[in-house]
Simulated scan of single mutants.
Amino acid sequence: MFHLRHHDGTVTSFMLGDGGNWKPLAGCWTHKGYETPGLFDPGTATFRLLNSVHDGDAGITFRFGDRGDTPITGDWNGDGTTRVGVHRAAGSVFRFRGAAPDGSDTSVAYGDSGFPVTGDWSGSGRSAQGIVVPGR
């Protein structure tokens, strides 16, 4: 169950997914200037992304990555639209969907095993990968 609090204090609540092992996401998937929810099922590497904040089916559903991957999100190319990616613990490999200038997917091995994070670390408008290593 999603419960989304708006700036005016109102709350929108709705169901998305089937209650399984889905991981929640948020992003500006449609370049409309606001973020909407999404889900990732690590058992099937399936993403479900909403195009608006409402109850109902996902606006787009697709598979990306492999079973057991961890979902990541970011603006890989600086165009203001959030895209998805995955992190694979074995080899600490990041896969970014639609990150290359021609829109193709890219992959990079980075860091030790740990918890994947993404962000615009340099103010460039583009998200990049990072790793949080517990205890270090």
Rank of each mutant, 00 (worst) to 15 (best):
S127T: 13
G65V: 00
A109P: 02
S13D: 08
L50I: 01
Y110M: 14
H7R: 10
F47E: 01
P101V: 14
L50D: 04
W22L: 11
G20E: 11
F115A: 15
A100I: 07
P116N: 08
Q129C: 14
A128P: 00
D102H: 11
R97E: 15
A58M: 00
I60H: 01
W76V: 08
Y34W: 08
T73Q: 12
Q129T: 03
D102I: 06
H3T: 07
G103D: 10
V117S: 05
P116K: 04
V108C: 07
T118F: 01
V86D: 06
G68Q: 01
S13C: 12
Q129S: 09
D112C: 07
D105L: 10
K23Y: 11
S124Q: 09
S122H: 15
L39A: 03
F64E: 10
D41M: 02
V86L: 07
L4P: 00
H31R: 14
D41F: 01
G38M: 00
I131E: 08
R97Y: 05
R136Q: 13
G80P: 07
T61V: 13
A45K: 07
H87D: 08
V53R: 05
D105I: 09
T12S: 14
G111A: 04
W121N: 12
S52W: 12
A100K: 12
H31A: 15
S124I: 10
T10W: 02
G68V: 01
D18N: 15
I131L: 14
I131A: 11
S107M: 07
P116D: 07
P71K: 02
F14Y: 11
F14R: 06
I131V: 15
W29Q: 02
G38V: 04
D120Y: 07
A99Y: 02
P42W: 11
N77H: 12
H6D: 13
A109Y: 01
V84M: 06
A26M: 09
L4T: 10
S127Q: 05
V84P: 02
K32S: 10
V86G: 06
D18R: 13
D120L: 05
G33Q: 10
W76D: 00
F47R: 00
M1C: 12
V132E: 13
T12P: 03
E35Q: 11
E35K: 08
T36G: 00
G27N: 12
G33C: 05
S113A: 13
G80W: 06
H87I: 06
G91P: 02
S92H: 09
S122W: 08
A45M: 11
Y110W: 15
I72K: 02
G123R: 02
R48D: 09
G130R: 03
S92F: 02
V84Q: 04
G114H: 06
D41G: 05
V117P: 04
T70P: 03
A100C: 08
G20S: 09
G65S: 06
R67I: 09
L39G: 04
W76S: 03
L39C: 00
G65N: 04
H3C: 06
